[in-house]
Design a protein around this nucleic acid. Structure first.
Lengths: 124, 124, 124, 124
DNA sequence: GTGGTCTAGACCACG
DNA sequence: GTGGTCTAGACCACC
């Protein structure tokens, strides 16, 4: 099930939350490449946000080459599998690097870090 | 060597960069608990930012119970070893959880993730 | 009628006066929980103080969990009835304790104190 | 036993804490009218504060007509019983009025207030 | 329109 | 010297 969501109480701006949410759904395959996105108005209604906010995200994703907008027929998801896959790897690698950098700055050794990760995967 | 730094070109606000920088230096022990912080004006001069910006960070850290400010005698670093240690663990655990959540959303399995982490640790 | 006010001649800093004024208006119900606060700029204009000063107060109340600010849509008053009620009692109890402590230090007996209070309530 | 005290961690400035502490000790009779105050240097040493701070307080109290300073022989406590008594009443009355004002602003009735006071006197 | 960040500079109180 | 308050005004992102 597709699950786009935004939280009003988060400190992250609505449009960034929504953009990330859409990206993750596309990357994980929940939103199918080639398929249609919900219309701006309907999505805005569902998420209870201003249509301008949804529109901004759609146009933004169009500039990023993720969506494809046609007047009168709404937005569709572009089908470039390679690009998506490489982007997926990039995302997760950056997250890992960020984690490693923080552990270095906090003086946490690699073994200790791997232990922590393992423990959280099991219990977390 | 203590190295407080901010980057003007980052999209993250100066005061947040500085706050995090100070926190990490305290957590890693580079800034000693019980010691004195540089004065607002001197740090502002060093970092080439406005004194108000440094002041905002110091007030903020004071509210967080990290610093302790007195008029006429400057800011000192509070000596709450336990609190700092638990905070340190908390920080790194949240970073790990965020990584795990993203890998789940992207449909990356645990084994695949651990491999990636291992490879990045080795090769930098 | 809501009546936020500050006095330039008071020795108490403007932002503390304003904070207390807002708190009292919320606690007494003159500013309704769930309602919207005036915008930073408009309140600053009304009170003839700098917008930064009002902003500082709003941030401060946000940290205290009293207000809730969103870019683009202003500050609203959080609806924590329980919290507010307990805070109200706390406030008045501290004031009473402070009075009792002072009377003890001045060597004024409890009966004498109660008499004084009674007289001031009637005539004051 | 005379007990002048200041707390470094309080948000109230040292010199005001000390002034109030001295005033209360005089008003309650613990510091006798006509008697001698400890010397600036000795009191500063005892309280571990800067001698300038004690000096400022003494000169301040001299201006208020409470102390009497003579070069070479230190400060003595002025002996004007009437003035002290009226001041004592004034102090406590102001504290009471402040309490009443706050209870009005918080919408707490007089009966409710008297109950609260009674309860705190008994148990507090 | 809203709040959020940042700068520049004045003035005050504290130790 | 230190921090604390307040003003004035710029620029940005968000809704």
């Amino acid at each position: 099930m597709i699950k786009l969501s935004v939280s009003e109480s988060s400190s992250i701006p609505l449009h960034l939350q929504l953009k990330q949410s859409i990206m993750l759904n596309i990357l994980s395959g929940k939103l199918e490449a080639g398929g249609k996105m919900p219309s701006i108005r309907s999505l805005a209604k569902i998420l209870k946000v201003n249509p301008n906010t949804v529109a901004k995200v759609y146009y933004n994703l169009e500039e990023d080459g993720v969506l494809d907008g046609k007047v009168g027929s709404g937005f569709t998801i572009r089908d470039n599998k390679r690009k998506l896959d490489s982007f997926k790897t990039l995302l997760i690698e950056e997250e890992i690097k960020s984690l490693l950098e923080m552990s270095v700055r906090l003086g946490i050794g690699k073994n200790e870090l791997m232990e922590l990760i393992g423990r959280i995967i099991e219990n977390g």
